Simulated assay, not measured.
Amino acid sequence: MAKIRVGRVGEQIKKELSVLIQTEIKDPRVGFITVTGVDVTNDLSLARVYLSIMGDDEQKANTLKALEKAKGFLRSEVGKRIRLRHVPEIEFRFDTSIEYGSRIEKLLHQIQDKDTDR
């Protein structure tokens, strides 16, 4: 039963953070961000937010710094929108699965091109 609640809370946090990042944060360092997932611990004390950020490494670092600075605001807004007794701490992480998947796809296309040349 607890796993179902943790999953629902995680999905709701993902939805609210996506909206908040896109509409409420006015920091120019924040570029195009997609919230790809949220993992919440069983005791709802920590939410790991996985982000996909467009841009080079410098832009990604600047965006992460801006989000770290806005972490308190985001946490308080999530607490207002989702009625929880204790709002989880937010921890931002890069989601590299999209980059990894595109790299694998590129390698597969290279292999396919070599096979068709034979």
Rank of each mutant, 00 (worst) to 15 (best):
T63K: 03
R85H: 06
L46Y: 11
L46M: 10
Y50T: 12
N62F: 03
E77F: 06
R48F: 05
L107V: 07
G79L: 11
I104A: 14
L64A: 00
R83L: 14
E77S: 14
L107W: 07
G55P: 05
L46D: 05
L67I: 11
L67C: 11
L84G: 10
R85V: 05
I90P: 03
G55L: 07
D43A: 09
G101N: 07
A47K: 02
Y50K: 15
A66F: 03
M54P: 07
K69G: 12
V40G: 04
M54K: 10
G55W: 05
L74T: 07
I104S: 04
D56N: 14
R85G: 06
V49Y: 02
E68L: 06
K65E: 14
T63V: 00
V87I: 15
G101L: 13
V78W: 07
D39H: 11
S97Y: 02
E99N: 12
I104F: 11
R81F: 02
S45W: 12
N42A: 15
V49A: 06
R48V: 05
E99S: 09
A70I: 01
R93S: 03
S102N: 11
F94R: 01
I82F: 03
V49M: 06
E91L: 07
I82N: 01
D56M: 05
L67E: 08
V35R: 02
G37W: 02
I82K: 01
I104K: 09
E91K: 04
L51H: 00
S45H: 15
I90F: 15
R81K: 14
V49R: 02
E77M: 15
I98F: 14
V40D: 10
V87D: 09
T96F: 14
L46V: 15
N62K: 10
H86W: 15
L44D: 01
K60T: 07
E89A: 13
E99W: 01
E91G: 00
D39K: 13
I104V: 15
S45I: 13
R85L: 10
K71F: 08
G79E: 10
S45Y: 11
D57I: 11
N62Y: 02
G72C: 10
G55T: 07
R75E: 03
I53V: 13
I104T: 08
V40Y: 09
L51A: 03
V35P: 06
I90T: 01
G101F: 04
V78G: 00
K71C: 10
E105Q: 11
E77L: 12
D56Q: 07
I90W: 05
